[in-house]
Simulated scan of single mutants.
Amino acid sequence: MDRIEINRANGRAADALRPVKLTREVMKHALGSCLVEFGDTRVLCAATIEEGLPAWRRASRAGWVTAEYAMLPASTNRRSRRETGQRKGRSMEIERLIGRSLRTVTNLRALGEYTVTVDCDVLQADGGTRTASVTGAWVALHDALMAWVDAGKISRLPLMGQVAAVSMGVVDGAELLDLDYAEDSRAEVDMNLVATDTGEIVEIQGTGERMPFGRERLGRLLDLGDAGIRRLIDLQNQVTAFRDDDEEGMDAYGA
């Protein structure tokens, strides 16, 4: 395949992430919190834990992890209305994605009869808000569960691994990693990948926005995404020391 010349913001290479930053403990009253930044996209993730379960879940004898997602009114260049009375379909779809992703790496039976909610509020949007939310939500979840361990509520950290997400796409014929808004808005192919630290896929969302794509291109995009996920997993581990500190708990739950 011929190499396509690209001109990305800040001279970023096709396979490069935007500058990513994970800042923990940014909220006083949340058990776990993380401000996640993918370039100019910023999402505040806050995890809280409540005793008890939703009514439909009570017979399971296992905990529950869920998420809520919203974009603040001034997060884009045009003010949007707050989602008070009627939720947007997009927001509900994204929060379900975040919840599914977190549950994939959580041992819900080991969690016990507690409900963890991770709130993801977009402070500033420049593409990739859902992937940033998944990545930051895991950090907030980790810290909340560690706080629950420290409080003696549960004996060991009920996390079996890590999960992160990244976007890929085809823009002006070039295959790119981690699209910003300017790229995403004109992408011929738009894709999101959610995967674990073991490389297993949680979810793939891919659409031929302006053109169809074949399996060969799909494979190359997934390779881009895999590499991006590995970098994000490493960054999560740098800020939480999960791989070092939680090895015993992971082994105990068959991770």
Rank of each mutant, 00 (worst) to 15 (best):
F38W: 06
S101H: 01
D226Y: 08
P158W: 10
S185F: 07
T198Q: 12
A62W: 06
L108E: 02
R79V: 11
A55R: 12
D121K: 01
R186A: 12
G208S: 06
S91M: 10
R109T: 13
I233N: 00
N7D: 15
G99S: 12
L145I: 02
E83H: 04
L123D: 05
A46C: 14
W56A: 14
Q124N: 12
E175V: 04
H29L: 13
E83P: 04
A140Y: 02
D40N: 15
A59N: 13
L111C: 02
V194E: 04
R79S: 08
L141Q: 00
Y69K: 05
N7Q: 14
V166I: 08
S185W: 05
H29E: 10
G208F: 12
T115P: 02
L193W: 00
G85E: 10
D121G: 01
D234A: 15
L141A: 00
P19H: 14
D245P: 01
R210I: 09
C45G: 05
C34M: 02
R103F: 06
V43P: 06
W56V: 12
V65W: 02
A255L: 09
V116I: 11
Q236N: 09
R231M: 12
T117V: 15
G214L: 05
T131H: 10
A14Q: 05
D178R: 01
W56H: 15
R217H: 01
S101N: 00
A165F: 09
G219T: 14
E216C: 08
D150S: 15
S60G: 09
G89Y: 00
Y181Q: 14
R57A: 04
A59R: 14
R100D: 03
A182Q: 11
E50K: 14
D234T: 15
R231L: 13
I229D: 00
I4P: 09
L159A: 03
G152P: 04
L176Q: 00
E51H: 11
S185H: 08
D143W: 08
A70I: 11
M146S: 10
R109Q: 11
I98M: 01
L159Q: 01
S33C: 06
D197C: 14
L222Q: 09
L17S: 10
G63M: 08
T240Q: 07
L232N: 01
A70Y: 06
M211I: 12
D126L: 10
T48Q: 07
G152E: 09
D172E: 12
L35W: 01
A227N: 07
N107K: 11
D40E: 14
L176W: 02
T129M: 07
R220T: 09
W64H: 03
D126Y: 06
R215S: 13
G206A: 15
V26D: 06
A67W: 01
V118T: 02
R156V: 13
L222G: 08
S91N: 12
E200C: 10
N7W: 07
E25K: 15
T106G: 05
A182T: 13
L17R: 04
T76A: 14
V239T: 08
D2S: 14
G52I: 07
K28Q: 15
T115L: 07
E183M: 09
D2M: 13
R96D: 04
D15G: 08
C45F: 02
T23K: 11
L53P: 03
S75Q: 08
T207L: 07
Q238D: 15
F38N: 09
R58Q: 13
A255Y: 04
R57I: 07
L111W: 07
A195C: 07
L123C: 08
D178Q: 03
I94A: 01
G169N: 06
E95I: 04
H142Y: 12
E37N: 15
M191Q: 04
